[in-house]
C-alpha cells in the first residue's frame, strides 16, 4: 500500500515535469531555452518508462534522445545562425493562437473522452521483461525490422551528407 502511494506520487511528479518541459519547449522565444524544455520533458518520459518497469527503454531514451538527438538539434541551432534575442520573438496574431489552440484541444479532447467513456481495465502491476527477452525478440521474430532500421539509418546518414555537401566552386 505504501509503495502504491509512492508510485502515484512519482507519476504525478513525472507528469508535472513532462508538461512543464513541453510547455517551455513550445512557448519559449529563445530556441536554446526551448531545447532545455525538451530535454526536461524527455527525462520525465524516461522516468515514466522506469515506472512501467521498462528499464532498457528508459535508458535508451536517455542515451538516444537526451544524448544524441538533442545534441543534433543544438548543432542545428548553432549552424542556422540563431539570433541571440530569440527567433520566435515576433508577435503572433489572434488567428494564429486560435489555430494552434484548436490543434492542441481536438486530439487531446478525443483521447481524454475515449479514455473516460470506454475505460480499459489494466493490470495492477506492469510485466517484467528483461533485456534478454528483448534481445531474443530482436534476433527471433523481429529480425527483419531490426535489419531494416539499420538500412534506414544508413540511408538517412548518407542522404544527410549528400544534401549538406558543399560543392567547391570552380574558379
Amino acid at each position: 500500500m505504501n509503495m502504491e502511494l509512492f508510485a502515484r506520487l512519482a507519476f504525478g511528479i513525472y507528469a508535472v515535469v513532462i508538461l512543464a518541459g513541453g510547455a517551455l519547449a513550445v512557448s519559449s522565444p529563445s530556441l536554446i531555452r526551448a531545447m532545455v524544455g525538451l530535454v526536461t520533458a524527455l527525462f520525465g518520459v524516461a522516468g515514466m518508462y522506469l515506472l512501467m518497469d521498462a528499464t532498457l527503454v528508459a535508458f535508451m531514451q536517455i542515451l538516444i534522445y537526451v544524448g544524441a538527438v538533442s545534441v543534433l538539434i543544438f548543432f542545428a541551432i548553432m549552424l542556422a545562425h540563431a539570433s541571440p534575442d530569440g527567433d520566435e520573438a515576433a508577435p503572433a496574431s489572434i488567428w494564429e493562437y486560435v489555430r494552434s489552440g484548436l490543434v492542441f484541444v481536438v486530439p487531446v479532447g478525443v483521447v481524454a473522452l475515449t479514455a473516460t467513456v470506454f475505460p480499459v481495465d489494466s493490470m495492477p502491476l506492469p510485466k517484467q521483461i528483461g533485456p534478454e527477452a528483448l534481445g531474443e525478440g530482436l534476433l527471433g521474430p523481429y529480425t527483419l525490422a531490426f535489419e531494416l532500421i539499420s538500412v534506414v539509418l544508413l540511408a538517412a546518414m548518407a542522404g544527410a551528407v549528400l544534401v549538406a555537401f558543399e560543392r567547391r566552386k570552380p574558379r
Partner: peptide
C-alpha cells in the same frame, strides 16, 4: 499524458 504530449507537439 501521452495525448497531452501529442497535443503540445502539434501546438
Amino acid at each position: 499524458v501521452a495525448a497531452l504530449l501529442l497535443g503540445i507537439g502539434l501546438y
